[in-house]
Design a protein around this nucleic acid. Structure first.
Lengths: 335, 335
DNA sequence: CCTGGTTTCTACAACGTTGTAAGCAACGTT
DNA sequence: AACGTTGCTTACAACGTTGTAGAAACCAGG
């Protein structure tokens, strides 16, 4: 049922290569020959075998995007932008879900790369720069804060600066007892450390003492973790007048917990997040946040990867930064 | 930098085929030979070329999942389950984003299938059964309500039954003026029609007249559409005491609009959705909904596809149904 | 030491495609 | 009439892998 170049060639009465030439748009084919071949292609509903083409060309036209979890809104939104940006360059994107575990990430980084894909855009949680060095072959672009100045190109945003500006926004609203939710001591917590540093810097700028009791850890950054951390803060007796959550899902969980505790947002406690996921634009109240330019991140990553694939693979790794914007909404400003 | 079987063979002093046998776990290889080969593999960091293997075997080990948009939470959650279920059977999943347009969906259905993948799990919005018939080749499993009893295997849930039970739940709480948000007259609106039918049936069961004025259309099913539809309903002067939104994102938008209008949920208006996305478990208030068994849907789809790929491709299409559960939460029950 | 069977290994061809090099017309120029 | 040029087409080999068939080495039993 599946036809090959050979079948088309026989039907059109030409050589296999001529059919190949027609398929690939080679110019020097007589119009009537081309017509005959195209007719035969249509009649047989011929489709090229990409495995064979890839084998011959050494390219697959597929790049992979590896993220920890697809149903984390930030990654889903990022995935959408990457797929779109890649499509514009004629690439198909294979999306891979690592689960965020070190072993799984290592498998993706070294394994998936087995000639199925031309390159990899990778957002690691657990993997370190050392895990990545010495991986020959497939060009790779890293996203996120886990690995920068590692062995591969990297696209990120200035987490410290963004967190600092967001915290300063809370200070500017007159808040003084500003809690932070999402700190992590594990090696995976690179983003957490940077955002915490920005938070601390903004407090120092304002002459507010850093209070360890106001900083709540969160093992992961899901809604449930945010809610749990907020409840723990409230239970511990500290009475914050603002909370900086290190991402939006944490913040949505915190909103939930504050609601259950009967506290008003932002009157009693202002809440801010990070990532600008779609949910935050419709939550009650809407969520103040840092909006990284996800489209730009995706585009930069795809373009960097394209450069590696087509160009110089041994050039030193590049570090690119995408812009972000402070986006205050109801959860700090009120209605 | 990239090595082939031949390189390993030369290094180990054996034939290419022997290396292939070691790689594929063939039993009849002398232990010392196997050791030499494995050593050579490790030294050269050999990875098989999947394009070549696929070409030879006629299988790629990759299946595709095509969904309209990845950042719609329902599809993201579904994607996660599909990836997980497929991984258990040793498959990699290529995720494709169609955008929901008819032309793009047609391209995916006929085009992606070009020998790169062994099968396709497809959740179409715009495509009809006719678009799909006559597509030779790649095994396909359809999800969703758009195409059932079409030319391919299908996994869905009983939308009418679920919508009916959910509406009955609202009736059971004493609500009488129950609005519906999300109706669609376009051919894409298959889910909308079924859910509307269930809604109408439940009203009839309860002896409540169906009131056209209480049914609000929504061009798409995003949060913004839900908010807009809710505002339109309120502006039109109808005063519903409950709203059945045809999916959770619509419901989250409706919650937002009700909040802005100063109405309490569920005291003034009870709200229910459909899909049980993660957001609904943390919204304020938490969202009553129909929870389809997404894991089951994913597993059934993957297993059906596996059956088609390995087995009889000409067997008549199968129709499978996954279970669902009414999941009442605060948006109808209160706290 | 031979026989017959098993184990271990190998040479070859094939999967479907495209790059290379070369062949063959047809053409206009000398 | 011989020549190079251009346009069009083709045969062949190669990409890296695995199935097939069979050769070589080994072993046990007579």
């Amino acid at each position: 049922m599946r036809h090959r170049l050979k079948d088309v060639a026989e039907r059109a009465g030409v050589s296999v290569k001529t059919v190949s030439n027609v398929v690939n748009g080679y110019v020097h084919v007589r119009p009537d020959t081309r017509a005959r071949v195209e007719e035969a292609i249509a009649e047989l509903n011929y489709r090229p075998n990409l495995s064979a083409r890839n084998l011959r060309k050494g390219r697959t036209g597929v790049i992979a995007l590896a993220v920890p979890e697809l149903d984390i809104p930030y990654f889903a939104e990022l995935a959408r932008h990457v797929v779109t940006a890649a499509a514009e360059l004629g690439w198909t994107v294979l999306i891979d879900q690592t689960g965020g575990g070190r072993e799984q990430e290592r498998v993706v980084a070294s394994g998936i790369t087995e000639h199925l894909i031309d390159g990899l855009i990778f957002s690691p949680l657990a993997l370190t720069a050392e895990d990545l060095t010495g991986l020959d072959g497939t060009p790779m672009v890293l996203l996120g804060e886990r690995v920068d100045h590692g062995p591969a190109d990297h696209v990120g945003i200035d987490n410290v600066g963004a967190a600092r500006e967001l915290t300063a926004h809370l200070v500017g609203l007159g808040r003084r007892r500003i809690a932070a939710i999402g700190s992590q001591r594990t090696p995976e917590g690179a983003s957490a450390r940077l955002r915490l540093a920005g938070y601390a810097a903004a407090l120092a700028d304002a002459g507010i003492d850093y209070d360890e009791a106001l900083v709540a850890p969160a093992p992961a950054w899901h809604r449930a973790d945010g809610a749990a951390a907020m409840r723990a803060l409230l239970a511990s007796g500290v009475r914050p007048d603002a909370v900086f959550c290190f991402n939006d899902t944490l913040a949505l969980g915190a909103l939930r917990a504050l609601h259950e505790a009967g506290l008003r947002v932002p009157e009693d406690v202002a809440v801010a997040g990070f990532d600008d996921i779609e949910d935050g634009r419709f939550s009650v109240p809407t969520l103040s946040t840092i909006a990284p330019d996800k489209e730009r991140i995706a585009r930069l990553a795809v373009e960097l990867l394209a450069g590696r694939i087509d160009g110089d693979r041994s050039a030193p790794p590049r570090e690119l930064s995408a812009p972000w914007r402070l986006t205050p909404r109801e959860s700090t400003l009120g209605r």
